[in-house]
């Protein structure tokens, strides 16, 4: 399908949305409510573009390309409209960017910067203050909520839990649990999939450590809990994980559960074993690697000599990596000479 975007001709498949088309050619269109996994809602209206001969502006996420369409994504008219929308959004938004945890990763902040919006000029009331602190892993601050609906749609369409929805109407609309009883008393399973998509600081993980997004680096890895093996990005400050984001381009498609998303603090728990330990006079005492390995290998030699290879047995681990497991069975089979290797994962 031949389409002209900002003066250049392109070819797209039938059924492609204008938003998708723009992203395919590397054009950044602002949006606060779009998520490719969900049915488009067109609710934030920020992605609107000008289509020649179509009169009013149209939201790119809900409009499909048509043969011969001529689109302007950044005309003066479009920019003015977007500025106006952002102005409205921040007119009832507490501009607490200085202390807001989301600062640096906030789409509202980024777009206001991009479109030069410094303050809200609409003189209306602030969003009703409502703060839900009852979930152990994340908080909800209604004042910062921009009602993009992403969290509600993800919880419903993707997670299938349907713990949250829109309450009230018009200016009083709020994201809330049924009957306003708080997350603690809702069906929420703390998967955090809503938190992962919140474009602003309304849904925020409760982080143990204070950090700014620009201080962090990111490492892609595999969740270490269950066999689904979700892919995720660890955000790290210094030597500590401060946040986990699901990978969107993997088989888990941007979803995680409470364990993958929030349960990483065990890594820096003070109880972690830090030194080898050897039992002396009945008690385990800390020692260095040299001594610990010496104790093990001299015992290995002794047992092998006296009782033979089949006096060894090893339980390898469904928690460790493939490489760890390979080395473990190699130690038993090749070095110690026995096939007495099994794992505990029948349980």
């Amino acid at each position: 399908m031949q389409v002209t975007i900002n003066g250049k001709q392109y070819d797209f498949d039938k059924g492609t949305t204008v938003l998708k088309a723009c992203s395919e050619i590397g054009l950044d269109i602002p949006t606060l409510c779009n998520d490719e996994r969900l049915v488009p809602s067109g609710s934030c209206r920020l992605c609107q573009v000008e289509i020649e001969g179509w009169g009013k502006l149209h939201t790119a996420c809900t409009t499909q390309v048509r043969e011969g369409m001529v689109i302007h994504t950044h005309s003066d008219r479009v920019i003015k409209a977007r500025q106006d929308l952002l102005d409205m959004l921040i007119s009832n938004h507490p501009l607490e960017c200085l202390t807001c945890e989301k600062s640096g990763a906030c789409k509202l902040q980024d777009y206001c910067y991009e479109y030069g919006i410094t303050e809200g000029t609409y003189r209306w009331e602030m969003s009703k203050p409502y703060f839900d602190d009852t979930n152990p892993f994340y908080t909800f601050d209604a004042r910062k909520c921009i009602l993009c609906g992403l969290c509600v749609r993800v919880c419903d369409e993707l997670q299938g839990t349907n713990a949250i929805g829109f309450e009230n109407r018009g200016f009083d609309t709020q994201v809330a649990t049924p009957f306003g009883e708080g997350l603690e008393n809702s069906t929420c399973v703390s998967c955090g999939n809503c938190v992962s998509v919140c474009p602003v600081g309304a849904l925020e993980p409760k982080s143990k450590k204070k950090f700014r997004h620009w201080e962090t680096r990111t490492v892609r890895t595999t969740c270490s809990y269950c066999g689904v093996g979700c892919q995720m990005d660890l955000k790290i400050k210094g030597n500590e994980i401060v946040e986990v984001q699901p990978a969107f381009d993997a088989h888990n498609e941007g979803l995680l559960c409470v364990k993958g998303k929030f349960s990483y603090n065990f890594l820096s728990h003070p109880d972690r074993l830090k030194k080898p330990m050897v039992r002396k006079d009945g008690v385990l005492v800390e020692t260095g690697w040299d001594e610990a390995l010496d104790v093990i290998t001299s015992k290995m030699k002794e047992v092998k000599k006296e009782f033979g290879s089949d006096a060894f047995a090893g339980l390898t681990s469904a928690r460790c990596t493939n490489e760890d497991n390979y080395m473990f069975q190699k130690l038993f089979r090749s070095t110690l000479g026995t096939n007495n290797v099994d794992h505990c994962a029948r349980l």
Partner: peptide, 17 residues
């Protein structure tokens, strides 16, 4: 559906007698 994260791998790698 495998329970622990790398049961599949532990078995693939010969963690079996």
């Amino acid at each position: 559906l495998r329970g622990q994260n790398n049961v599949q791998g532990a078995c693939d790698m010969g963690g079996l007698p």
